[in-house]
Simulated scan of single mutants.
Amino acid sequence: MIKVVRGNPTPEELAAALAVVRARAAAGPEPAPGAAPPPPGWSDPARIARGEIRRPGPRAWARTYWPG
């Protein structure tokens, strides 16, 4: 709940202030100063398991050999 302590804001001013407060609340908490930033999405190991896991075919072992 928001309470106006001083002044007499117009409905437009109050709506603007409320919009700013709601936008900040929707953005989530700010990280603490000096805290490590979260890892980027590309390094998330869970992204590997997002797709369908396919089973190898009957001759898949033959494609694993690399002559060299």
Results as ranks from 00 to 15, higher is better:
L18V: 09
A35V: 02
G34W: 07
S43D: 15
M1I: 14
E30N: 08
W66I: 13
P67G: 13
A36E: 15
V5S: 14
P40R: 12
P56L: 08
A26N: 06
D44K: 08
G57S: 04
G7R: 02
P29G: 15
W61P: 00
G57E: 01
P39N: 02
A62S: 08
G68L: 13
A25R: 12
A35I: 05
A27K: 08
P38R: 04
I2K: 07
N8Y: 00
L18F: 00
P38S: 04
G34Q: 10
A26Q: 11
R59C: 11
R24A: 13
R54E: 12
R6E: 14
A36K: 13
G7P: 01
P11I: 04
E30T: 09
P40S: 13
E52I: 12
A23L: 07
S43V: 15
G34L: 09
P38L: 05
R54T: 12
W61Q: 03
A36F: 09
R22Q: 08
P31S: 07
E13Y: 00
A60R: 00
G68T: 15
A27Q: 08
G34K: 06
R22V: 02
P38N: 04
V20C: 05
A25N: 06
A49T: 15
A36M: 14
E13A: 01
G41K: 10
A36L: 15
P39C: 02
A46F: 03
M1Q: 02
R50H: 01
W42V: 15
A25S: 09
P45Y: 02
P38Y: 03
P39T: 01
R63V: 11
E52T: 13
G68D: 15
A25I: 03
G28E: 06
M1N: 01
A46H: 03
G57W: 00
P58E: 12
P40Y: 09
E13T: 01
W66D: 09
G68P: 15
E12C: 00
R24P: 03
G51V: 06
G41D: 13
D44W: 10
N8M: 03
V21S: 03
L14H: 02
N8V: 05
A62N: 06
P31T: 07
W61G: 00
A19S: 13
R50N: 02
V4L: 08
Y65F: 15
G41P: 05
R54Y: 12
A49C: 07
S43P: 08
M1E: 07
A23R: 10
A35N: 00
P9G: 11
V5P: 06
K3N: 15
E12V: 07
T64S: 10
P56V: 05
L14I: 04
P67F: 09
G7V: 05
S43N: 13
I48F: 03
I53L: 15
R22L: 06
G51L: 02
V20R: 10
G28V: 09
I2H: 04
G57D: 09
A46Q: 10
A62C: 06
V20M: 09
R63D: 14
G68Y: 08
I53M: 04
E52A: 11
G51D: 12
A35G: 00
A27N: 03
V20D: 14
